[in-house]
């Protein structure tokens, strides 16, 4: 399971990296989205995977009994997802505005701030 998930993680990262290196700024947004998924899956997998057994106590219990999935990576991912959403929303609108202002979605025409 982890081996295959590792491959999935790798492919998601690769696809994300590939997309953020395109010339189109719209693809950049999609790439950032893919990288977000990749990061979440990465933390999820590397924090070990446990089929079923969510870290929720049945009513009446006052401790969580083995076996259970480690809740901490899940909390991390939840935080990361939410933060990622905020960033993604902002970046999307930023790209839209850049597109409107520059008049193209071609990255090669957005190099003026680096010209000495």
């Amino acid at each position: 399971m982890e081996v295959l998930l590792a491959v999935v993680v790798g492919i998601l990262y690769a696809a994300g990296f590939y997309m953020i290196m395109r010339r189109s700024i719209v693809k950049l947004i999609l790439g950032l989205g893919l990288l977000g998924h990749a990061s979440n899956m990465f933390i999820f997998t590397i924090g070990r995977v446990m089929r079923g057994n969510p870290p929720v106590m049945p009513h009446g219990h006052d401790v969580l009994t083995q076996p259970y999935a480690d809740p901490l990576p899940q909390a991390f991912i939840l935080t990361a997802i939410v933060i990622g959403f905020g960033v993604q929303a902002f970046a999307t609108v930023l790209v839209k505005r850049a597109y409107q202002t520059v008049g193209t979605d071609d990255f090669d025409q957005m190099i003026s701030t680096d010209q000495p």
């Binding site: 950049l28 970046a91 930023l94 850049a98 202002t101 520059v102």
Partner: peptide, 15 residues
């Protein structure tokens, strides 16, 4: 315009 162009690079690399 400058802000947006610079901003995209800033945002992407920091992300």
């Amino acid at each position: 315009r400058n802000q947006l162009e610079g901003g995209i690079k800033y945002v992407t690399l920091n992300l």
